[in-house]
Nucleic acid binder design. Structure first.
Lengths: 132, 132
DNA sequence: CAACTTACTAACCTTTTAGTAACGATCGTA
DNA sequence: TACGATCGTTACTAAAAGGTTAGTAAGTTG
């Protein structure tokens, strides 16, 4: 139970939460996993259009890193013009339910959070700066 | 089911996954929630020591934002020297099981991911650059 | 009186992340 | 000849995230 005696290996830099965050804490990875989980196979340009505001570069980079980690399977068809299809691997699919739970939590609670934040800001403004 | 017809509101910039990521995608928020869920009430310096490699500034900033959103409750004791205790709110606690699921997924699969990544890098080096 | 304490703020700087714009390869079409 | 389609790459730039250092309050300890 790690009673307050210095550092804690479950919180230190190798703990699993941090590993997951390092991997998926970027702007696009989880979004692409979610999208592929809904749509199955998609082409590069289909992903780009569906997301709408991702740059070509970031889509390339993110897909490549997901492929590199075995979360996404990339199939290249050497036609002219070239065609590439992306889909989730089994590993990628195994992550989906957890993402959806987080998403559901967000749908339930995000309004409250944003209200809290607004109220906090107002309170701060009224008070100016109080000691601590 | 959003059949490939332009953009998708569940993936666009207001979808719940992105909101959750915007809130918790930073380096420390989830870690602190996890820690408080284990330890209950903690003082500023206890959190700092347990995590080990967080700067004072980032701890202040992250705790303040968690407080602002109503995820963490901050209790200030006007003693000399000052004492402050932090604990999860009910809202904060409601997030914990989801984090733990993600963490468990990480523990199960992160080794595979890192292996995949290593193999991918090696493959890339051997091939040099092939067309696509 | 100097040093130390806790929690925090402010100024500054470095690192990381993401975006933009331009270009390439290749063939079919106008 | 030039353009468009597809899936990229590269170099450059802007913005954000996060780290470092110094300083504050007000009392306690040596």
């Amino acid at each position: 139970m790690s009673r307050k005696s210095g550092q804690n290996i479950w919180i230190g830099s190798t703990c699993p939460i941090r590993q997951v965050l390092d991997r998926f804490g970027d702007k696009w990875s989880i979004l692409i996993v979610e999208l592929l989980s809904h749509e199955g196979k998609l082409r590069f340009s289909e992903i780009a259009h569906t997301i709408g505001d991702i740059s070509q570069k970031m889509l390339t980079v993110t897909l490549r890193s997901l492929e590199s980690d075995g979360l996404v399977i990339r199939q290249f068809f050497p036609e002219i013009p070239p065609r590439v299809e992306y889909e989730l691997s089994e590993l990628g699919k195994s992550l989906v339910p957890h993402i959806q739970q987080l998403s559901a939590w967000g749908q339930t609670h995000m309004d409250t959070i944003l209200e809290n934040r607004k109220r906090f800001e107002e309170k701060q403004q009224k008070q100016g700066k109080t000691a601590y």
